[in-house]
Amino acid sequence: MLRFFGTRLAQLALVVLAVTLLFYWMLNLLPGNPCVAAFGGAATEEQIAECEQDRNLDEPVIVQWAKWGGDVLTGDFGKSYLTGRSFGEALNTALPRTLLLLAYSQVLALGAAIPLGLWTGYKQNTVIDKIASGGAFALLSVPVFVLGLVLILVFAVRLDWFDLSGYQPISEGLGAHFRVMFLPSITLAAGLLPVYLRLLRTDVIGTLQEDFVGTARAKGLPVRHVLIRHVLRPSSFTLLTIFGIQAAQAVNGAIVVEFLFDLDGVGSLLVSWVAAREFLLVQTLVALIAAVFVTVTTLVDLLYSVLDPRIRRK
C-alpha cells in the first residue's frame, strides 16, 4: 500500500517537472530573446534588462527553468514588467472567484446528476428516462457560450432576475453574491451534468442486476432506500474516475463563462494577459494550472484505489 502510494507520488513529481519544463521551453521557441519577444516593443530598455536578469538568460534553458521553478516554489511568481503588478497580487483577487464558480457548478451538477442518474437507471426505458437521456444528449451539444448567452437573454435581460454588473464577494451579502454567481454556475454545471448523468445511469443499470439488490428488495426495503444505500456506492466508481478529467474540462468552461459574465477570475486573467502579450505571466499561470490538474487527477486516482481495493493489485 505505502509502496503503491510512493510510486504514484514519485510519478506525479516527475510529470509535474516535465510539464512545467515543456511550458518553460516553449517560450524559448519564440524567435529572439524571450524577454524582447514577449513584449514586442512595448517595454523600455530597463524593463527588458530587468527581465533578462530575472530570467537568467545567460544560462542554459534547463538552469533557467530550475531557477524559475525554485522561485515559484518559494512563492515568488514574478510580476508584470509592463505594469509592475505582481503575479501573486493578481491571483489573490482572481483565484477565490474561480474556485467558488467551479465549486458551485460541481455541486449543482452532482446534486442534479445523482438523483436523476439513480432514478433514470431504475426506470430504464420509461418516458422519464427517455426525456432525461434525450435532454442530456442535447445539453452535450450546446457550447457553453451559446447556453450562457441564452440564459443571460432570458433571465438577466428579459426577466431581470439576475445581476450582470460584475463579481460581488460573499462579504457583500449572500443575496448579492448569488445574484451574480447563479447564472454562471448554472451555465457551467449544464456542461458537466449530462456527462455525470449518463455515466451514473449506465453504472446503476449494471449494479441493479447484482444479487444483493434483489436480496435488499426481497427483504422489503423501499426502493428509495435500496437505490441510495445499496446501489449508489458501487455505481459511483466510474463517476469518480471521470471527476478528475471533468475538473480539468470545467476550467475550459470557466474561462469562457468568466469572460461571458465579466467575473474577472483566473480565466479572465489569462485572457487579459494574453491580450496584453504578458507571455511570462501567461507561462507561469499555465504551468501552475497544469501542475494543479495533474495533481488533482493523480489524487482522484489514488482515492479510487482506496475505495476499490481490487485496483491496487493490478
Partner: peptide, 21 residues
C-alpha cells in the same frame, strides 16, 4: 503516460497558450 497527462490538462488553456506563442 503522455496521453493521460495530456488529458488531465485543461484543453482550452493549452490551446490558448499555443496560439498566443
Amino acid at each position: 503516460s503522455v496521453v493521460n497527462v495530456a488529458l488531465a490538462l485543461p484543453a482550452l488553456v493549452f490551446a490558448l497558450f499555443i496560439v498566443t506563442m
